[in-house]
Design a binder for these strands. Sequence first.
DNA 1: GGGAATGTAATAAATAACTATTACAATAGG
DNA 2: CCTATTGTAATAGTTATTTATTACATTCCC
Lengths: 134, 134
Amino acid sequence: MKLNIDPDSSVPIYIQIEDRIHSMIAAGQLQPGEQLPTIRELAADIRVNLNTVARAYIELDREGVISTQRGRGTFVSDVPNKKQRERKRQKLLQSIVENALEETHHLGYSAEEIKKAFAEQLSKLPEKREEKLS
Amino acid sequence: MKLNIDPDSSVPIYIQIEDRIHSMIAAGQLQPGEQLPTIRELAADIRVNLNTVARAYIELDREGVISTQRGRGTFVSDVPNKKQRERKRQKLLQSIVENALEETHHLGYSAEEIKKAFAEQLSKLPEKREEKLS
DNA sequence: GGGAATGTAATAAATAACTATTACAATAGG
DNA sequence: CCTATTGTAATAGTTATTTATTACATTCCC
């Protein structure tokens, strides 16, 4: 579980956890039925209080995307069918790309510039597996 | 001045203001010498307390990107030369695209998928000038 | 049954962000 | 000089996030 949590970010840690798990499920990196790290495990892992992780899990449980069972653990919920999962996976990708393009466009960059920047960055992708976001 | 501030975001409003102004300057939408909205104007505009805008302006002033003068107003600082500005403009674009690609890649999307999603979104760009970010 | 591991809960304290309010200081313009 | 407009400042109060601590409830396994 590499959550990439940033404790110095201004977005609350429990929200970051929710977002990451949401994304990982949508992207298929967490499969239905799979067990998530223990609250205490994850808390120790990202150096955060137990309550903070618990809060994230509780919210995700309320939404139905995970299922927490005291004494047993926490598991990714089952999801209707493959088509829906695939649709969500596509939607997630689209929204990430779309938001980035909206931002560049809003700032007045031309389609040409954007296209070029994208092509450059994409060509670098394979060599950049483990790099961190600033 | 369309700052696109989201009062419900978990990132602090004064940080959002700083970020937007940074970006607009880097992108060339705010020119050196240009006057920024009054603290009270901007506060009223985005429905926020005067202190919140003041805080953002003070920080930006400390960084030197704007120059605040009591009794007169706030202005975009002069910047060394055109080449440096153009370099910053390029860097901003790169970082936006790069961050988005990092995220998709981190979530396991293939270069093919990403490329396709990007091409689709880019083709829609021209018709989406005034759309808001969710 | 007993113990270890799990999630759940409650309380208190610290910090940060934001608001509201009021006042002050410098500049521009009549 | 007077007044309006600008940025600056200080105080107090509210809310949200996070931590620390302690305890409880359920499940599993021996």
